[in-house]
Design a binder for these strands. Sequence first.
RNA 1: GGAGAGAUGGUUGAGUGGUUGAAAACACCAGUCUUGAAAACUGGCGGCCCUUCGCGGGGCUCGAGGGUUCGAAUCCCUCUCUCUCCGCCA
Length: 436
Amino acid sequence: MIDIKLLEKKDESGPSYLDEYRKSLLNRGMDTAVLDQILEFNRKRKELITQAETAKSQQNKVSGEIAQLKRKGEDAASLIEQMGKLAGQVKAMELEAQAADQEVQNLLSIIPNKPQSSVPAGKSADENKLVKTVGEPGKYSFKPKEHGDLGEALGILDFERAGKVTGARFTFLKGAGAKLERALIQYMMDEHSEKHGYTEMIPPFIVNSQSLYGTGNFPKFKEDVFRLEGTDYYLIPTAEVPVTNYFNNEILNEQDLPYSYCAYSPCFRSEAGSHGKDTKGLIRQHQFNKVELLIFAHPSKSEELHEKLTSDAEKILENLKLPYRRMLLCTGDMGFSSSKTYDLEVWLPGQNSFREISSCSNFEDFQARRAQIRFRPQAGGKPQFVHTINGSGLAVGRTLIAILENYQQEDGSVKVPEVLQKYMGGMKVITKSATH
RNA sequence: GGAGAGAUGGUUGAGUGGUUGAAAACACCAGUCUUGAAAACUGGCGGCCCUUCGCGGGGCUCGAGGGUUCGAAUCCCUCUCUCUCCGCCA
């Protein structure tokens, strides 16, 4: 949620927040008429509130007088009758004011965050900016295979049976594949909690609609999540949802910031609207594992901590010796709630391309405003919204893909990255004979 | 799933229809005292919204949402959550 007060603020000296926000909507390829509607509804809302509150003030005053009279044992019948009429009017005015407020909230909840000034304007992923490339794609004396073919041949991935048991976009991991997945989770959690200062967390994998609203998934992207029928429970699309809402409706102490968490969870996505996209292999599944990094930051520190969080995620790729690049997303490719996003893309020789493996965003106060997460400045001032930052550190399924494709050998076996070997019981190579 | 109890400010905890936004204590902040700290004393101390340049004024808020009433923390209804006992269960 963006701050409506900023939208209303006029700036004599330069372009106003409203002007800039309007421009950012255009950069995302969106219509800006909604802004005028919001401002108009808000003007109306204030007018109605003032009206209703004047009447209520009168009501409170006379109620007090009635109490006085009664206490003295005097007659208050005429005042009570008079108030009976006023009570009806007050109710009507309140309803009107509430309706206007609801309009404002509804419209406000479907407009995206305002990008930071360092975010390049652009319509699509083609206009994202390359920040850096780390590592060299390996040289192969043979044609590298895709992970799906490799995994099936090794007997560690089974797409067909998953299709039978559940449906498309699900997979069985088996033998060394299951072990590798587990090793990756373990390794990432250890690395972030022991070396990067995050507190481990395993959140609920099911949340209510309010939490999804808090992170910005609702109301606009309802169709992306799985709902448990007949309930207000939803399978989480990412640990970001439960963890961000961990502090919802709380006022934190300034000196306790930042709070940093690394959270493991499976993620469930309906992938509505992606029919026909990435149908092969593990790239786009309805269920996948992820280790998520999340920081509740002081506003003055959020940019710095966004950089740190992104580097922390990159460290995993570097330790696994996987070539990757960091992209700065342009306005058109950025998520709804984000003010700035870096994507980390890992090199996949089997597909001869870079694919997203982590997305690290600074949401500033956009989510905190929705979820009401604040801190009290030490000077005893008014509570302020914290900034939230999060990113995958990393998507485990896609990391497994990257390992299969980057570490494959001509005979179809796959070497185990050195840092993972101790988590794999010392296994150095995954071969077909190792599993059945 | 059955039976019961409960939800009040940062915390504990009073309060059952009329100056109760809410006693008290603790915590916290500021000041006095002190070389400093502690103790003691004094004062302050929820959040949101409308209005005002500011001082200030006003409204809402006692788990959430409705209702009764001139007036609700207090009465009624619905929901959520917590606790105890029983059943079931990894």
